[in-house]
């Protein structure tokens, strides 16, 4: 038995079950947050944020995240060249950074694409696995921020005049944008849509009007 079948909605902030009125607009009596049967316009919002993230993914990986000037020579580093540098010095750390900064954003974008398309096609398959995929996607996303912190720390430390300086590059900003956009996209996706049966989407839309 699912909450929506009984006309009940779970408050997303405090989990109180609230009986939905015909208007579809109600505030939680316990915490005051607006309550919806499903996150409003979840699919459209998630698509918008995800497409923005995919666009920003290109400059995030192509532009240098920092420029190192050491004894007069300047070298620009992208996310990938940073991973390759680490590979020569400390390979376990290189693997962690590769997973966090290269694989996780890419897989996160692919996972959200798959979730969105399968929900829109009303796929009845692998619902539990797709829910688990969503849960993992939401959990691991923040770890991609690691390279942004590396750039910030190195730029703060390596400011020793003519000897060595590190300047943050545009890629770092683009990269942080990708991480934030994918985090917001995962938050705006409503996993319960995976479980909604065919026809239920229309039912809600009519109720809301």
């Amino acid at each position: 038995m699912r909450a929506r079948d009984l006309g009940l909605a779970s408050c997303h902030t405090c989990s109180l079950l609230v009986r939905m009125p015909a208007s579809g607009h109600v505030h939680c009596p316990r915490c005051g947050s607006p309550v919806h049967l499903r996150k409003p316009n979840s699919i459209g919002t998630t698509w918008a944020l995800l497409i923005a993230a995919m666009i920003m993914y290109l400059p995030a990986n192509l532009l240098p995240v920092m420029a190192t000037t050491y004894l007069g020579n300047t070298q620009a580093d992208t996310i990938m060249s940073g991973v390759i540098y680490l590979l020569h010095h400390d390979w376990p750390l290189a693997v962690i950074v590769f997973v966090a900064s290269v694989l996780v954003p890419l897989l996160k974008i692919l996972a959200l694409l798959y979730l969105l398309i399968s929900v829109q096609r009303r796929s009845p398959l692998r619902k539990a696995q797709r829910t688990r995929l969503y849960r993992v996607t939401e959990l691991v996303g923040r770890w991609s921020m690691v390279d942004v912190f590396v750039v910030a720390l190195m730029a703060a430390l390596v400011q020793v005049g003519a000897l060595a300086t590190i300047e943050p590059g545009g890629g770092a900003l683009a990269f942080a944008t990708v991480v934030i956009l994918t985090m917001l996209a995962a938050m705006s996706f409503d996993a319960r849509l995976i479980w909604d049966e065919y026809g239920e989407h229309y039912g809600t839309a009519q109720q809301a009007r």
Partner: peptide
């Protein structure tokens, strides 16, 4: 709502990585 935006653990990993990266230089 605030919890996902606190990234102390991720920052710590960033500290480790910058340690290794800078150890070759200084």
């Amino acid at each position: 709502h605030l919890q996902p935006w606190g990234m102390l653990d991720v920052f710590m990993l960033g500290v480790l990585v910058s340690f290794v990266k800078l150890a070759g230089m200084a």
